[in-house]
Amino acid sequence: MTETILYGIKNCDTVKKARHWLDERQVSYRFHDVRTDGLDPQMIKRWIAAAGWGKVLNKVGTTWRKLDQTVKDHVSADNVVDLLMEYPAIIKRPVLDQNGTITVGFRPDQYALLFNL
C-alpha cells in the first residue's frame, strides 16, 4: 500500500499552503505534526539522505536565529540529526514523503509534477 505523508507544523504558513493545495486537488495524504506527533532519528536521516542536511535545516526561521551562535557555528553532518530532534521547528517545512520520494519545502509546480496534476 502506498501512502503520502506531509510532515510539518500545523500553524506554519507554508504547511498550510501545501495542505490547501493537496486538499483542493483531493490528494489523499496523512498529516504528521512534527511537534505533537513526534520525530525519530531514522525519519530525519531518510530526509537528509534524500535532500541533504543543508536543505532539511531551515536557517532562515526564528528558531534558528534564536539559537546560540556557538551551536550555529558548529552544526555539521555529524550532529545535525540531534539538533533537528531537539528543535523540530528548524526543519524546513513541509517535508512530503510520497511513496518514499522525499520533497522538502513547498512549490506548487513541483507538487503538480509529483502528483501528475
Score class of each variant (00 low, 15 high):
Val95Leu: 15
Asp37Gly: 06
Ala49Asp: 13
Pro88Tyr: 07
Gly61Gln: 13
Thr14Lys: 04
Thr62Ala: 15
Leu22His: 03
Gly61His: 13
Ala77Cys: 06
Ser76Tyr: 05
Leu83Arg: 04
Asp13Lys: 02
Trp47Thr: 02
Trp53Asn: 06
Gln42Arg: 06
Lys45Glu: 05
Gln110Val: 15
Phe106Tyr: 14
Gln110Ala: 14
Leu57His: 06
Glu3Trp: 01
Leu114Val: 13
Thr14Ser: 04
Met1Phe: 05
Arg107Gln: 15
Leu67Arg: 10
Thr63Arg: 09
Asp78Gly: 10
Thr103Ala: 09
Asn11Cys: 13
Ala49Val: 06
Asp40Val: 00
Leu39Val: 01
Leu57Ser: 09
Val27Lys: 10
Thr70Tyr: 07
Ala112Met: 08
Gln110Trp: 04
Asp109Pro: 04
Val34Gln: 12
Val104Lys: 04
Ile90Tyr: 07
Pro94Trp: 13
Leu117Pro: 00
Lys72Gln: 14
Ala112Glu: 15
Lys66Met: 11
Gly54Trp: 04
Gln42His: 10
Met85His: 02
Leu67Cys: 11
Leu117Asn: 10
Leu84Val: 01
Gly54Phe: 05
Ala77Phe: 04
Tyr111Asp: 14
Cys12Ala: 05
Asp23Cys: 06
Lys17Cys: 03
Val56Thr: 04
Asp40Gly: 00
Thr62Phe: 11
Gln26Arg: 10
His74Gln: 12
Thr63Cys: 07
Gln42Ala: 08
Trp53Gln: 05
Asp13Phe: 02
Asp23Asn: 10
Asp33Arg: 02
Asp40Lys: 01
Lys16Ser: 03
Leu6Thr: 00
Lys92Cys: 11
Thr14Cys: 02
Leu96Lys: 03
Leu96Asp: 14
Arg93Asn: 14
Asn116Thr: 13
Asp40Ser: 01
Tyr29Leu: 09
Gln69Ser: 14
Asp82Gln: 12
Ala18Pro: 01
His32Ala: 02
Arg35Pro: 01
Ala89Leu: 15
Pro88Arg: 10
Asp13Gly: 02
Trp53Tyr: 10
Ala50Leu: 07
Ala49Cys: 05
Ile48Asp: 01
Gly38Gln: 04
Ala77Ser: 12
Ile102Thr: 10
Ile91Phe: 15
Lys72Pro: 05
Thr4Asn: 12
Arg35Phe: 06
Leu57Gln: 06
Asp82Tyr: 02
Gln98Glu: 14
Lys66Asn: 09
Gly61Ser: 14
Leu114Trp: 03
Thr62Cys: 14
Val34Gly: 00
Lys10His: 09
Ile91Trp: 12
Gly52Leu: 09
Gly52Ser: 09
Tyr7Arg: 02
Thr63Phe: 05
Arg107Gly: 11
Ile5Gln: 03
Asp109Trp: 03
Gly105Asp: 10
Thr63Gly: 07
Gln26Tyr: 12
Phe31Asp: 08
Thr103Met: 11
Asp68Ala: 14
Thr62Gln: 15
Leu22Lys: 04
Glu86Asp: 07
Ala112Arg: 08
Met43Val: 01
Arg107Pro: 02
Lys16Phe: 08
Asp78Met: 08
Asp37Tyr: 06
Asp68Val: 03
Thr62Pro: 13
Ile102Gly: 09
Met85Ile: 01
Leu114His: 05
Asp73Met: 07
Gly38Lys: 05
